[in-house]
Every structure is written in C-alpha cells, then in structure tokens.
C-alpha cells in the first residue's frame, strides 16, 4: 500500500469529518431553533429582554451562525464538546464514562456474532438450496426481521421471571469493579445485539463463500488432492474473508451508534442512553457531542477497514503493480 494512497485517504477522511461536523452543527444547532426557548420552555416567556440577551450572549447565540460554527469547531479541535445544560458537567466527561460501556457491549456482541455468523454462513453455502441452506437462511431472515426492541423486551421479562433479575441503572457494575458481575450484566444485552449481527454476517459469508467456491482456483486446489477441509478454509473462506472482514468492520462502526435500544431496555449507562437522555431533555450539547463522536468513530473505523482490506489482499498490498 503506497504512502500516497494512505495520505490521500487520510485527507479524504479529514474532509468527511469536517463535513460531519457541519451536518451536526446545522442539524442540532440551527434546526432546533432557539436553544433558550427550548431549554426553559414556558419560563422563557417570562424572561426580560435583558435577561434573554444575557443568556444569548452566554451561549454565544448572538453572533452569526458562521462565527458560532467556527467557535464551536475550534472548541472541538481542543477536545471541548461543551457543557451539559442540565447538569453543567462537561460533555467529554459524560462521554468518557459512557463510552467504555458501549465499546464493551459492541466488542462482546461482535465476539459472539462473528464466529456464529461465519460458521452458519459456511454451512448454508456448503449446499446451496438444500434443507440446511434454506433453514439457515430462514432463521437469518427472522434474525433480521424481529426488531431488537422485541428481543430485548422479551429477554428482560424472561430474566425477571426466571432469575428475578431486573436491570437498573443504579446497580451497574463496571468491568473494573467486578469482571464477573460486569459480564453478568453485559452478556444478555450483547446476545440480543448479536442476533441481528450474526444474521448479517451469515448472509455476507454465505454469498461471499458461494462466490469464492465457484472460482477456478478452488478446482485447481482439489485437483492437487488437497483435503476438502483445507479447500474450504484455506482457499474458499480465505478468499471470502475479504468481503466478510469489510462487512464486520462496518457493522462494528454501526454498532457504536446502534446500542441505544439495548442500553435503554437493559438500563446500561452507555453512549446510547446518554444520547437518548440528551434528546429527551433537549440537552443539545450532549446530543451534538455523542452524535459527532459516534459519526467520527464510524468514519475512522471505515478507514481502518479499508486499510485492513488492502493489507489482506496481496493484489492491493504490493507497491508498483504490473500491467
């Protein structure tokens, strides 16, 4: 992979990140209208003109939107995401507390979903159209179609009736406090997340595997007398691996912004909960901060996926290519 390519991609990524910041600013700063009215609700009507102006000045709302954007953007570059209007706590602190929860959830879900999805995808692809293929595909479609909130709700109800366990935000145990206690809390939400993920991984694996299995080099390998197991893993799965890895990476990026429902139902203090609380309390600094962070993470993850993709494939890994 050439340095030039890498630099070009990094430049493109930075451009996208600026674009992301603009969109977040426009959507969450300009669209919601007057923050003060939004914040104080009916009380806003009782403000005197002077109080109102003072507040506007305090929040920097008296300057032009462009100036506001650059002030805000400059803050971002210094790692300043603003202050929660509700609690006065810097948004970066709130995110700092919430991020590990979401990350752990996402990683756990991936660790469960990827092997399951890959194995079942291979199983389905090993005999296209056969009973095993149709059943795996049917279950996979259900996995995608049953909404996460339904699975999460049912799981919580089951936990309550079977173990008299009711998740609550107050009793959250971090991984530092107790590994086992933490895992007990995280396992079920991660499993719920893993269902849809595994279905997606399974579908990608199935089609990538089928595509690779039809390649000429697979026949060449069999023609050498290579064992069927080795043909499947070393040749077919390895080649199918490139699209699978790409998809898994992208799904991981999605997951960072997609744990909201599960965090809500299982009362986990992650980014999703933070975002949801921010939205419900119209605490826009929080909403902006979380949205921005997750989108940026998504962009960076996608960039990483692209780099990994290129490293995995010798055709794009090597420097000068011959014609």
């Amino acid at each position: 992979m050439s340095l030039r390519y890498l630099l070009g991609r990094v430049a493109g990524m930075l451009g996208t990140l600026v674009g992301v910041a603009v969109v977040v600013f426009v959507v969450l700063r300009a669209l919601p209208g007057d923050t003060i009215t939004a914040k104080l609700g009916t009380q806003a009507a009782t403000l005197t003109a002077d109080q109102r102006a003072a507040l506007r000045h305090f929040y920097g709302l008296d300057s032009s939107p462009v100036t506001q954007f650059f002030r805000w953007f400059g803050g971002l570059l210094h790692g300043d995401l603003g202050v929660s209007m509700d609690t006065g706590v810097p948004v970066t602190h709130l995110i700092g507390d919430a991020l590990p929860v979401t990350l752990e959830l996402a990683v756990l879900a991936m660790v469960i979903a990827v092997p399951v999805g890959v194995l079942f995808g291979m199983l389905a692809a090993s005999r296209p159209g056969a009973v095993r293929d149709l059943s795996v595909q049917g279950v996979g479609l259900l996995g995608l179609a049953v909404p996460e909130f339904v699975v999460a709700t049912v799981t919580v109800a089951w936990l309550a009736s079977a173990f008299a366990y009711t998740p609550s935000a107050g009793t959250y145990v971090s991984i530092g406090d107790s590994f086992g206690g933490n895992l007990r809390q995280m396992l079920y939400p991660a499993l719920v997340l893993a269902i849809g993920l595994a279905a997606t991984v399974m579908r990608t694996t199935r089609s990538a595997y089928l595509e690779a299995a039809g390649s000429d080099f697979v026949r060449t390998a069999r023609g050498k007398g290579v064992t069927e197991a080795r043909v499947r893993f070393r040749h077919i799965l390895h080649n199918a691996g490139i699209p699978i890895v790409t998809m898994v990476g992208i799904q991981f990026g999605y997951l960072l912004g997609g744990t909201l429902v599960v965090e809500q139902v299982f009362a986990l203090p992650g980014l999703g909960r933070l975002l949801l609380d921010g939205i419900l309390h119209q605490d826009y600094a929080i909403v902006q901060g979380v949205t921005l962070l997750v989108a940026a993470a998504f962009v960076v993850v996608n960039f990483g996926v692209d780099v990994v993709y290129r490293l995995l494939d010798p055709r794009t890994r090597s420097e000068g290519r011959r014609a």
């Binding site: 390649s215 080099f217 060449t220 023609g223 050498k224 007398g225 040749h235 390895h238």
Partner: peptide
C-alpha cells in the same frame, strides 16, 4: 483424493483464475 495430483493431474484453460490470488 489421494490419486488426484499424484496419479492424475490437470491443467486448466485460464491461468489468470486457476491460481489462488491470496
């Protein structure tokens, strides 16, 4: 399987796709 490669071997039409690119 053990006869393939050792007793009978085959070469194919398209050398561009007959080898594993990875």
């Amino acid at each position: 399987r053990t006869r393939r490669g050792s007793t009978v071997a085959m070469i194919y039409q398209d050398p561009m796709t007959a080898l594993n690119p990875l």
